[in-house]
Design a protein around this nucleic acid. Structure first.
Lengths: 354, 354
DNA sequence: ATGAAAGCGCTAACAG
DNA sequence: CTGTTAGCGCTTTCAT
């Protein structure tokens, strides 16, 4: 039978150990005052016997701070944010910080809601992966004096360090890879708005082309959404262009897959007629799509570095309020094993006809 | 310029509104005592003017409870857990609960660590997705009297309700689907241990076969790991069997993809020679592998229902300490558009030869 | 080396 | 309808 522990307070321990409450604290916290070995032993025994656990709530109230940080991300359902969250929790745990998970669901309104919640909870700080272009959540956090670290975006309106992947390098490496494969006519599929990271990726793309003296037909740049269907639609148009490209640099893997799909459907051979590279926003997508080459972003590392910055801030270190140096990016060329590269499936189709 | 808010307490509000501290509380909490409209207005104005936010820490200390629940999952890097986490946070938010994210990293030791942390934080309850076969974390939580809801597993040693997907139904539906496609010789690839959900899936598999009077050669059941390579290895063996199956029921999508891969590599035509169905443990995998048929598990719903149970417990409702009724399972037959179904890629291969 | 005591900000019982 | 007050469990200064 399992023994049940009723709530045990520090005073209970003090009573049992026949010392003052203060002494118990000194033992539990290993300071700030020394405790005689003999006394310490008595206290530890009492703690053990009673199954005492310090109450973090009372502790936080007294210290007027907490060891909890808030993590505001759009949606961990998206593997990209899930990996970031993983990194955040990992590093937080290594620094004895606890993480409150907040999903903004890509809505400013939810971000602001959580800013409120985290303020009420007196979170020690907030790691924020902005979901919209509004700096408002950051501005508010700032005005409340809550330490903040921004992920993946710069927000010039906000006084906070940011952790940013090296999108320029990624765009450059991806394009360089395509050039090395022998491609000379390029297209680029990107998302509609000119956000910092999307424009950086394209800047890298252009830099690689320029470096190799390759002309780029500006009419071969397409802005769409950032979903699979957007990539497909964009490629359909592009592949009909008079100067048809042999290579596409896509904003992300999902659009890249859409582009491959379109090319295939139009009767092109892949990759003989078309090579595509995209950033791995949805890493698992590339996992099962061997034809796709991806630029692997250091997502877990982003999360970890975000918390590292936060820890520095909490320890009062002098932090550069600007962005942290961009993180390196890996270019992954996935080997195709030809696993599921077979013609469409009549059998499965059939099941729908019933 | 953004106005900075220094820490404001309830007493500050009381002073400015020229009422007692208690009255401020009554306004903030809408009770438990009525407040005259005139007074309430003065208080609200003061709150607004000072930018006051109640301090949840002090509140929790006084009430001896918190509105925070712990979520212990193996790893949100795995999309399966990420979706569950999403559901948990969603429902928690709807019930004004805050979620502390804890990654056990598939380790019992980490689970126990977080049990400690959550006890120290005086979490109102814990949602636990067990990472190992050890009931110990649940047993401890139990002994501390902390409300607990277990996800996806039953733990008979633990006094706690569990939310379980209907694995039997999933196994049944998947197999029924294959039978309807005309298959009569089956194989089954599963994971090594006979965990509750894996054996349930196989029980459903067998039930469907029995119902249709289909013989099953027990030597065609294979236990491997639960990764892609395990599925591949298993299928390689199976497809050499004297009574070669035309259909495989795989434990999950990853093993299913491995199986498809093996079949393809052995020169079989897919799906003419082999159909495979697996549970969608890694949903994004199926997303880009159209040949794969998956049993879609209600992951977000699992998370939501887990929190719903927790809320009932916290409100003192009479909860059946056994498992909640299994959640329904959807069988998704993905349409193949033939997107990336082309031969292996010489161009990309080449880049590795350099 | 240790004890006593003053709060941290809040809720709610008690007293008008 | 409102004010006063006793803690919630803890840290730390002030005494000893």
């Amino acid at each position: 039978m399992v023994e049940r522990h009723p709530p045990v307070t520090r005073d209970d321990v003090a009573r049992v150990a026949r010392v003052s409450a203060a002494t118990v604290s000194y033992v539990v916290n290993n300071g700030p005052r020394p405790v005689a070995p003999e006394t310490r032993k008595r206290v530890l025994q009492a703690i053990e016997r009673l199954g005492y656990k310090p109450n973090a709530i009372a502790r936080n109230l007294r210290l007027r701070r907490s060891a909890t940080i808030g993590l505001i991300v759009p949606d961990t359902h998206n593997p990209y944010f899930a990996e970031v969250a993983r990194g955040v929790e990992q590093m937080a745990s290594e620094n004895d910080l606890t993480v409150i998970l907040c999903h903004s669901d890509y809505k400013l309104e939810r971000e602001l809601h959580y800013v409120d919640v985290l303020r009420t909870e007196r979170a020690a700080g907030v790691i924020w992966f902005p979901a919209t272009n509004s700096p408002e959540p950051g501005v508010q956090l700032d005005s409340y004096g809550m330490p903040l670290v921004v992920l993946d975006r710069t927000a010039s309106e906000v006084q906070a360090p940011a952790v940013i992947a090296d999108n320029f390098l990624g765009g450059y490496l991806a394009t360089k890879h395509l050039i090395d494969l022998g491609h000379r006519v390029f297209s680029c599929i990107t998302r509609p708005e000119a956000l910092h990271h999307s424009s950086e990726r394209i800047r890298g793309f252009r830099a690689a082309l320029t470096e190799h003296n390759i002309d780029f037909d500006e009419s071969l740049i397409t802005r769409g959404g950032f979903h699979l269907e957007d990539g497909r639609a964009a490629a359909e148009q592009i592949m009909r262009h008079s100067s048809r490209p042999t290579a596409i640099f896509a904003y992300n893997d999902i659009m890249a897959i859409g582009a491959l799909r379109a090319a295939y459907e139009m009767g092109f051979k892949v990759p003989e007629d078309l090579s595509v590279v995209g950033f791995d926003d949805i890493p698992q997508a590339a996992f099962t799509c061997p034809a796709l080459t991806t630029v692997s972003q250091p997502k877990i590392e982003m999360g970890r570095q975000g918390v590292a910055l936060m820890v520095d801030i909490l320890h009062g270190k002098n932090i550069d309020r600007g962005a942290a140096p961009p993180l390196p990016v890996k270019l992954i060329v996935r080997e195709s094993t030809g696993a599921y590269m077979y013609p469409p499936m009549p059998a499965q189709r059939r099941s729908h006809d019933k």
